[in-house]
């Protein structure tokens, strides 16, 4: 126990836990809709696209997080607009923008000479280096997205399960879809700060994937996904602190273990009740 108290006495760990707990809940809640709508490639694409925003910030001397957020927002809205006007499948559009944006980021980074610590921290995440300014940005954006999510939860669920019926019932499907894209891109870029471009999708996909193996009701599914996301974050940060492991990768591995436990539990229940 003393080592836990010691861990929590460090300001950088306090900031890591605060930002991690907020973002784990937010990304898992959005992840529920990502998994229903089978759009996990979207969050992956947005995360990779943010590299161009980070590169622009690095070569122009600006703070990376706000620039990456703005860039991701623009990419998300362009994808939404093109989905509606071109009728191209969204994974095709995401594939185009994801690779183009990533390529732009690599070219821009090559223009900046010398070692790029910011680039590495965004590629693999650096939750322990979260500053108070970052924490405030995360808190404000997460609060706004969460309020929208709570207010739109029923509508989002209905349109994710049955878009035509949702439209007939009067839900503004294009606007709610655009809002989901915006919320998801903002939350994904905030998550990039914690887990990095490469691993952020884990916080969006793993908790809902593990949660659905544990319950037959939607209410249970939402609760399970949120609780598992928080366990993943707390256990991941604690284990990485105790054993001096990279925090982002440890969080993902703990989440993967939870997923297999949930899947195994479901299999066992099926066998026992058969």
């Amino acid at each position: 126990m003393p080592v836990i108290f010691e861990m929590l006495s460090y300001p950088f760990m306090q900031r890591a836990f605060a930002s991690g707990l907020v973002l784990a809940a937010l990304l898992a809640a959005l992840g529920i809709f990502v998994t229903i709508r089978k759009m996990s490639f979207f969050s992956d694409g947005i995360a990779h696209s943010s590299l161009a925003g980070i590169a622009i910030a690095v070569i122009s001397g600006l703070a990376p997080l706000p620039v990456a957020l703005t860039w991701a927002l623009i990419v998300a809205l362009i994808i939404w607009r093109l989905e509606r006007s071109t009728r191209l499948p969204s994974d095709t559009l995401i594939g185009v923008f994801f690779t183009a944006s990533m390529a732009l980021g690599v070219v821009l980074m090559s223009l900046s000479r010398g070692y790029q610590p910011e680039l590495l921290s965004y590629l693999f995440g650096s939750i322990l280096s979260i500053q108070t300014r970052d924490l405030l940005t995360i808190a404000v954006i997460a609060a706004l997205v969460m309020i929208w999510l709570i207010l739109s939860f029923r509508q989002l669920t209905y349109l994710s399960l049955s878009e035509d019926n949702a439209a007939v019932s009067g839900i503004n499907v294009p606007v709610q879809t655009a809002a989901l894209y915006v919320a998801l891109s903002l939350a994904t870029v905030l998550g990039v700060k914690i887990l990095g471009i490469v691993l952020v999708s884990a916080l969006i996909v793993i908790p809902p994937a593990a949660g659905r193996a544990m319950t037959g009701s939607f209410r249970g599914y939402v609760v399970a996904a949120l609780v598992l996301a928080e366990i993943m974050m707390v256990a991941g940060l604690t284990v990485s602190y105790l054993y001096d492991l990279p925090s982002g990768a440890t969080i993902v591995l703990i989440g993967t273990a939870l997923f297999f436990l949930a899947a195994g539990g479901r299999w066992l229940r099926t066998v026992l009740t058969a």
């Binding site: 399960l161 659905r212 037959g216 009701s217």
Partner: peptide, 11 residues
């Protein structure tokens, strides 16, 4: 997908 009949109808 985990959703009950009652939950879906309620939407």
């Amino acid at each position: 997908f985990p959703i009950t009949v009652g939950e879906y109808m309620d939407l």
